[in-house]
Nucleic acid binder design. Sequence first.
DNA 1: TGCGTAATAATTGGCGCCAATTAAGTTGCA
DNA 2: TGCAACTTAATTGGCGCCAATTATTACGCA
Lengths: 237, 237
Amino acid sequence: MEQSPKAQRVVARRALANEIAQAIRLRMYRPGEWLRQIDLEEKFQATRFDVRAALEELAVRKTIEHVPNRGYRVAEIDLATYFAIRDTRIILEAGAMAGVVANIAPEAIERLAVLAGEFGDAVVSGTRIEQSEINSAFHHLIYAHCGNPVLEEMIWALRDRSRGSRVTVWASHQALLASDRDHHAMVEALRRKDVPRLAEIIRQHIDKDMVDETGQGPSQRVTDTSQSRGSEVSEDT
Amino acid sequence: MEQSPKAQRVVARRALANEIAQAIRLRMYRPGEWLRQIDLEEKFQATRFDVRAALEELAVRKTIEHVPNRGYRVAEIDLATYFAIRDTRIILEAGAMAGVVANIAPEAIERLAVLAGEFGDAVVSGTRIEQSEINSAFHHLIYAHCGNPVLEEMIWALRDRSRGSRVTVWASHQALLASDRDHHAMVEALRRKDVPRLAEIIRQHIDKDMVDETGQGPSQRVTDTSQSRGSEVSEDT
DNA sequence: TGCGTAATAATTGGCGCCAATTAAGTTGCA
DNA sequence: TGCAACTTAATTGGCGCCAATTATTACGCA
């Protein structure tokens, strides 16, 4: 059976939004750069209306920013927002670990081990993009097993939002090696079904990826957890 | 200085989306009900274009659902999604507590205490809507102090999404009384800066609100947090 | 030459019209 | 009377046009 012309349009529009989002993910459009509607029309062979709908969708998803009468541009997030996203990611991704441990199958863990190994190889001999893609696949595979589609979706939405920063991940080779170690440690903790350990690794993993190379330490985060952490320990004496 | 006509339109459109969202929140439109564009035009005195933009925004935010050639309707979520939302809410809202304790001022805590008292009054003598509004205000005030706008926004977005269910909150008077007790317990824990206790109350609070009246126990949740519960308290000994 | 100002070009964005589609109503036939 | 096919009515949604707005360039004056 053939699909109706209208239904096709709806699909095309959703796909277009994802294509543009993908382009931003791949850094084809840099933070602060304007997304000119005419260019997008040609580049993606879409009508102006579809382009506008896609841009609006991305704006609602906060991937891009809308300035009236100026257009849409890749959101340039400030440091405070950057750290807010990081802290929220830590809460979500660490919180997902309980579900992952409860639901993941042993075979999936082994596939993760393979990916962790591939990342290690990419660290020494791969391009930045390869590293990024394998890293993405690794984390995708983990959260795909958290047993909670809503949570999974939120995690990816947040990861997309954090791309709007000019901060480059893995600025140093040290950081790459640390990431590599973390991945293997995660696999190991998964095998042992050690939820607290997993959560702790994730916490540090995100901290390192999003802080190390800016020279900004975890202690300077917006949501001050050093204080709360201390109080957590001492308060109920 | 007068604002340009175009800028005004943009503001109007965003406002319209929130107005419709508010109407859904107030249950003026029930889950499964179709939102006819012509009705909305008249009801909110807006152009068809603005209505459509607002509906699209709400659809992206998953408050409503879009069916091609049929229109938009209040999303009717299934039980699995309902529980997924609940589990994600628990992770987010419990996770926000560290920030709240770190950032909230004593005066704000006292304002919370007042609201907790008002809720208690409303339980015995108020309407369902009053109860709901005071409850909302109470939780709003808490999360407003978590020091993380991104986290705060996500919490409210999720709360909006969970309205699409037919499940009525506070089905029993028992549940209302339990909510009331929880609020006071939260204020008390806030005063003592007891993060783990606060998180635990929040967890149970959401569990009760979203489970009790369905007759479905917390043990049947999708994301199994019973394991992480023990670990989170003990993790940084 | 530098700066404020006016003309010009480029871009966004509002919206009305009508085709496509679905729902409701009606008729006819077994 | 029940059901199916057809007709009519109601609703959604695509999109092109052009006004509103902003950016750019050119110009004139101190």
